[in-house]
Design a protein around this nucleic acid. Structure first.
Lengths: 222, 222
DNA sequence: AGATTTGTTTAGGCAGTCCTAAAATAGCCG
DNA sequence: CGGCTATTTTAGGACTGCCTAAACAAATCT
């Protein structure tokens, strides 16, 4: 009834939605690695199934049902990643690809078994929350980058700003979801922060940094 | 390049071939749960890829390459069954269905990891041999039913006879691969055997019984 | 505003796998 | 052998998901 392709599209829409409201078909097409027309076609199909709401030329938004389906796939994905890493000794850079294929074919029973084998975890190897079986996702209230103290390190989870210019600026600097960051310096009051990502450091206004949600790493991490 | 459907067909052909020479398209269609025309179509495609040899109206036989591919899938299947049962506590009657879906999507790395985790096994939960990675299958030299002594029990693995009539006779009596049998009596010299399968017992000529390969069960089995 | 650029949708096709119906072939029986 | 029946193949479609090219809409620039 619901093809694998549909699941992939729902998941992609979910992930794009996380980083900002409605999702354009071109962004979706890019995320899926297909032509824009293909994304439009699938969006229409999903809209017909009431899994998304589509306002032509305005983007697409998951419906309640669509979000639930997306979260089921994401739960599978994250549990699999964790299982591959923990139980089978996969390195972290390889779990994603394998989980990507397995997530569509495992049964509820398989999901249940690995969930139990892992001790009913709530976070995957990347620190992302694992949606619950009923489709509930405890969205971690991540710290704002502007809240971190000098010396602290973390991983960017979400970048939201109404100004596309600012987003582009941050993107060019590598301050995008999943990037690791470290706070080098922090001026007092509402002064700027100096942060490092990859090999280079950048100075950010406090206001801008407050729009970047990060997941702080424990101090004893590598 | 090689679709999942093709893998399934190759596997089905392999299994049918095990039970007797060339495979008819209708037998293949039935095994795959598709219309006869669909099987013909796929067979032509596989023949084009040199994975099978097809003589119209005469059935289909795996080529060397086709057999290797079939064995790879079967290796995946059997390793998965074993892993699901051993590592995840699946009951034996559920492993097959899950393995059926997983076998097509796991990577070589996954295969390798579970192979090692299981201690490099050579038999699956049903007692079937697991093909080696290079596509070699150590075909167990099963006992002939006619060799078993009264009281012995086993599982039929292969029934081969040039006489279709005999095969049908055996089929009607439930003496088919995977059936459990027990030898009740055995006349001396080349006299007949009385064997039981399911609830009923049958008398078989020694000659016929010698064409039935069985895997003997250890005496201490249930 | 008008023109250009950018983004989105429609239209028409292609490949893969399935189907049904009809034609071709093989096997069997009188 | 000739004809019946069962099996197998061919022919023609349906459906999914992808593509390119062209039409359309919105945003941007002058």
């Amino acid at each position: 009834m619901f093809s694998q392709a549909m699941q992939d599209y729902l998941k992609a829409i979910y992930k794009l939605q996380e980083q900002g409201g409605a999702v354009s078909t071109s962004a979706l097409a890019e995320a899926m690695g297909v032509a824009a027309a293909s994304a439009t076609g699938m969006v229409k199909k999903l809209a017909g199934l009431k899994l998304v709401r589509h306002h032509p030329y305005q983007g697409v938004v998951l419906s309640k049902a669509g979000e639930k389906m997306a979260l089921e796939v994401i739960r599978h994905h994250r549990l699999l990643e964790l299982y591959l890493a923990e139980a089978l000794g996969y390195s972290w850079d390889k779990v994603h690809e394998e989980a990507e294929r397995l997530e569509h074919v495992i049964s509820e029973e398989f999901e249940e078994k690995i969930f139990e084998a892992l001790g009913r975890p709530t976070r995957d190897p990347h620190g992302d929350p694992i949606p619950a079986k009923d489709g509930t996702l405890v969205v971690a209230e991540h710290d704002r980058l502007s809240d971190l103290e000098p010396g602290a390190t973390g991983v960017i989870r979400q970048v939201s700003d109404s100004d596309a210019e600012v987003l582009r600026y941050l993107g060019i600097r590598g301050l995008v979801p999943d990037a690791a960051v470290e706070v080098l310096e922090k001026a007092p009051f509402n002064g700027p922060l100096t942060v490092k990502t990859g090999e280079t450091s950048h100075v950010l206004g406090r206001e801008v940094a407050s729009h970047i949600r990060v997941e702080a790493r424990a101090a004893d991490d590598a």
